[in-house]
Each structure stands twice: as C-alpha cells, then as structure tokens.
C-alpha cells in the first residue's frame, strides 16, 4: 500500500502513463471515432462527393429512409442474417464442439474433423464468395451437376440469380465459412470446464444431451454470450460476401445496410443519404454494445 502510494506521488507518473496510451488513442480518434462523428454530421446534409458546398437538410435524410422500401428490405435482411447466424454459429457450433470434446471419436479423428471444419474460416471472404459463385453456377457448377446426377434436377436453379433464394444462399455460404471457427472457440471454452464434473455425471449415467444442457451450456455461458454478440455485430456489418456474390441483387432482394451504404456513397454519389444509413448502423452497433456491457455487469 505504501509503495503504491509512493509511486503515484513520483513526479511525472501520471503524464508518463498517458504517453504510453496516447499513440493508440490518437489512432482511434483519427481513424475510428473522428470519422464516425463526422459521418453523423454528414447525415444532416445533402451533398455529393465532389461538391464544395453542403446543403443543410436537418432530418430529411432520416425521413427519406423510412419511406425507402429498399432500406427497410435491407434492414430486414440484416435481421434474418443475424437470426440464421446465431442459430448456426451459436446453436450448431456449440453442439458440434460438445460432440468433438465428448471423447466419442479417437483423438486423431476429432483433430481432423476440427481442422476440416475450421478450414473455410482462414480463406478471404472474397475468395469464398467467388468459389461459391462458381460452385453454384448453373450447368458448370458442382451443386447443379450433383443435383442432376442424383435425380433432383428439378431443384436446379440459378441460386444467386433468383430473388427468392439469393439472400438465403449468401447467408448459408457465410455459415459454411464461420461455423467451424466458432466451433473451435467453443471447444476451447468447453475444455476449461473441469473434467471431473463430466466424469461425475457420466458415472451417474447421465445421457449426452443431459450433460450438454446441465453442464456444457452453463459452463460455457460467458463464451456463448460473447459469441452471440459478435455474431449479431458481424451480421450487422456484413458487406464483402454480399458485395462479391450478388452486390445486393437481383432486384435488391439480397441488399443489406452495408451494400446500401456503399452504393449510395460510391456509385450513386448521394453522400448525405449514405451517411444516414451508416449512422443507423452506428446506433444499432452502439445499442448492441451497451446491451453486452449490461449483460456482463449483471453476471
């Protein structure tokens, strides 16, 4: 106690600490927070990228959002993205992790399965999008050729070219890429649960599902919470996979907030409107962040 007191009284100590965190803070202010705040300001104006003057329009851009069916469609698409992602990357991934950690398979098999399922997550999202575009291409693609081969030729369709299936197809490709990664995260979390608790339940003759619900789920609660938040945030900011696979089409059916924001700014040159969409993303992200902090404090 006395020693700590002594250090804090050493002249220059406080200034010194600030110097050490200053570079990080400067980076965040210049490249993250500053631009984010500028973006909120831009949302109150109407202007194009090259124009020298900005016309103040108040909340007109926000009013326009609510009347824009494509924006509302995008918002709904993000929500569906989040819902399906939580089902796969929390529900399915946790179940798979529990099975791999239950010593059902010999360890070399469990390791191989883990590596195989993890593999898609190391690839650039863009490359994944391009590969699946090829796999799903009519006639040439593997998916179509397999369907014809097994007699399900009727199911064949232009998966990405059909407004009914485009969004779902993109979402499922995302699940293909990330479920294995989250599964590996859950395996680490499950391994941190004391082994003797599992052995005790096995001695009692508890079934696999019961062990899962009564031990694995509560034991991995913290990780489940964080992964859920990360997954929802990830679905909110999704951009690259959609941009590469469908660019929001056909007919805006697979549009998400990210693609709408990007097109408004860099294709249609309506910067104020684009900033308004980005501000909506900003406030949703902020809300999710606050909810996370609340949930973690309650524990």
């Amino acid at each position: 106690m006395s020693r700590r007191f002594a250090i804090s009284r050493t002249p220059g100590t406080s200034l010194h600490g600030w110097l050490w965190v200053a570079p990080t803070l400067v980076f965040l202010v210049v490249f993250v927070y500053g631009p984010a705040l500028a973006n909120v300001r831009y949302s109150l104006f109407s202007f194009s990228a090259m124009s020298t003057s900005m016309e103040f329009v108040g909340l007109a851009n926000y009013a326009r959002l609510l009347d824009d069916p494509i924006f509302l469609q995008g918002l709904a698409n993000n929500a569906l993205y989040a819902l399906i992602s939580v089902i796969f990357q929390v529900g399915v991934a946790l179940t798979l992790a529990a099975v791999l950690e239950a010593r059902i398979f010999p360890s070399f098999a469990a390791n191989t399965f883990r590596s195989a399922l993890f593999l898609p997550s190391i690839l650039p999202v863009v490359v994944v999008g391009l590969i699946w575009q090829l796999l799903l291409a009519p006639a040439m693609g593997l998916v179509d050729q397999v369907l014809w081969e097994v007699g399900l030729g009727d199911w064949s369709r232009a998966w990405l070219g059909d407004p009914d299936t485009a969004l779902l197809t993109v979402i499922m490709v995302s699940q293909w890429q990330w479920t294995g990664y989250i599964m590996a995260l859950f395996m680490v979390a499950i391994r941190a649960i004391p082994r003797d608790l599992y052995e005790a339940m096995e001695l009692e003759g508890a079934s696999g599902p019961r062990i899962f619900w009564n031990l694995t789920v509560p034991g991995a609660r913290e990780t489940i919470l964080i992964v859920t938040i990360i997954t929802i945030l990830g679905s909110l900011k999704v951009f690259d996979i959609v941009w590469v696979m469908t660019a929001g089409g056909p007919n805006h059916s697979s549009e998400v907030l990210g693609t709408l924001m990007y097109r408004a700014a860099f294709r249609d040159d309506v910067i104020g409107y684009s900033s308004t969409i980005a501000t909506v993303i900003f406030f949703i992200a902020l809300t999710i962040g606050v909810v996370q902090i609340k949930l973690q404090k309650d524990r």
């Binding site: 984010a36 973006n39 831009y42 990007y262 902020l286």
Partner: peptide, 10 residues
C-alpha cells in the same frame, strides 16, 4: 464495436 462502414466515407 464500431463497424468500419460507419467511418468509411469520412
């Protein structure tokens, strides 16, 4: 928490 999209145009 902040997605890069939010800071992109600025």
């Amino acid at each position: 928490i902040l997605p890069p999209e939010v800071s992109l145009f600025p």
